[in-house]
């Protein structure tokens, strides 16, 4: 089984600034890896590089067996990225949004998948035909999570996923991460909620200054 993520001396740039400064990382298929580090360490940039959103300026990067330097497009639909933004159209309803994203990744029976995803994140029935702009930030977070499930990604990249969720939502998220790994997906997530995150993760990678500075079993 090839590793889910294999970065070798990877440099990626934000404008002219090297956010990843020759980073090495290997994540095996099915692992749950916690990414930690101070603000500005490059956690978000690492996740975005793995998602193929930041161009690899030098070194190599292979994700799910695809070389990101050669082709970033084909692998992306297999990756789910949950960032700080919602990735949702504010003016469309929850159902409109999720059905659009489900069809975009060519899901079979998109409407049914969307309904079950919304059930999974426990979003009340009455909120589903409401414009996303009218939801609270925690509710939006749940919809973004539902959008992740709809994609059925083989690689989950989560950036501060616990932020903005209530206690119930955090438990739900942890359960979803565990489920994803159990079904064979790989999870890489950045978090400052160390107690909670360490309980979920099987390994903890610390980065600073755009490189890995520690790599321990959790």
């Amino acid at each position: 089984m090839p590793p889910a993520i294999l970065l070798r001396d990877t440099v990626s740039l934000l404008g002219r600034y090297p956010v990843l400064a020759g980073l090495d990382l290997r994540v095996e298929d099915g692992e749950i890896v916690l990414l930690r580090g101070p603000n500005g360490a490059g956690k978000t940039s690492l996740l975005r590089t793995c998602a193929g959103l930041l161009r690899v300026a030098s070194g190599t990067a292979t994700v799910l067996g695809h070389d990101l330097c050669v082709d970033r497009r084909t692998v992306r639909p297999q990756i789910g990225l949950l960032g700080h933004a919602t990735g949702l159209y504010d003016d469309l309803t929850v159902l409109d949004n999720l059905r659009f994203w489900a069809r975009a990744v060519r899901a079979d029976r998109p409407d049914a998948i969307v309904d079950s995803a919304l059930d999974r994140v426990a979003l009340a029935e009455r909120l589903r035909s409401v414009a996303v702009a009218r939801l609270s930030s925690g509710q939006r977070r749940r919809v973004s999570l539902a959008a992740m499930i709809v994609r059925r990604p083989r690689l989950w990249l989560l950036d501060e996923p616990h932020a903005g969720l209530d206690a119930e939502g955090r438990d739900l998220l942890d359960a979803m991460i565990a489920e994803a790994a159990a079904s064979g997906a790989t999870v890489l997530f950045a978090s400052h909620e160390l107690d909670r995150a360490v309980a979920v993760a099987s390994r903890c990678v610390t980065i600073a200054g755009g490189v890995v500075v520690a790599d321990d079993a959790a």
Binding site: R76, A85, T86, L88, D90, W101, A104
Partner: peptide
């Protein structure tokens, strides 16, 4: 807005 650009790139559309 709201990371929709990234979401579109990730969608494979």
């Amino acid at each position: 807005r709201d990371g929709v650009g990234d979401a579109l790139r990730m969608s494979g559309i």
